[in-house]
């Protein structure tokens, strides 16, 4: 039965697929990045339809708003928007095709054998996606994975800062050593 919700979902799902294809096929890196932004934004709308406003807005803030802005920034800074006309893939193309076909077959098998299982998925309560509920499950049920993720991110940040400082940091240290020797 076609309800309003299904129609809206269908329209947005089509936009998601079309923007993903546009991202893959676009020969201009800026356009590809913008297609990806559209894709993220539409996926956020799908989250909204599913009753998860928190995840939807985090998706927009983090992916569309921060990560893609950085992508765009780097593309613009390097002036790397023009991609080469032909992809230098070579025989990788055939391996990719093979894996794609395997994935497609897997999907088809899943659809055939598990088609009846859809009804078995419990619909979560409406409160499930609210910020308070997300916070509670993050800091109580999943506190350890959350902390580990945070730790890994801090390590990555420190590493990135160290890498960018590189020579300058050593140079400054040497300057300090020379200064202390002078005294």
């Amino acid at each position: 039965m076609l309800t309003t919700g299904t129609i809206i979902f269908g329209v947005f799902a089509l936009v998601v697929i079309a923007s993903a294809l546009g991202m893959l096929l676009s020969r201009n890196a800026i356009y590809a990045a913008l297609f990806l932004v559209l894709n993220f934004a539409t996926v956020a709308v799908l989250y909204l339809i599913l009753g998860a406003p928190f995840i939807a807005l985090v998706q927009i803030t983090v992916y569309a708003g921060s990560i893609m802005v950085l992508f765009l920034f780097v593309i613009m800074l390097l002036g790397a928007e023009k991609l080469p006309a032909g992809e230098p893939l070579g025989h990788h193309r055939w391996i990719a095709l093979l894996f794609g076909l395997v994935f497609l077959a897997e999907l088809a098998l899943f659809l055939v054998y598990r088609a009846g299982m859809r009804a078995a998925v419990n619909t979560p309560p409406l409160e499930f996606g609210s910020p308070a509920a997300v916070g509670m499950s993050l800091f109580q049920k999943y506190a350890l994975p959350f902390e580990i993720t945070g730790f890994i991110l801090v390590v990555a940040t420190v590493g990135a800062i160290l890498l960018t400082r590189g020579e300058g940091f050593k140079g400054r240290k040497r300057t300090l050593e020379i200064q202390s020797q002078d005294k």
Partner: peptide, 18 residues
Amino acid sequence: DINIAVLYLMAVTSISIY
């Protein structure tokens, strides 16, 4: 009056860079 209003502000701010 949505329960994620401040997050909405952040989301729109981050989009406005484009």
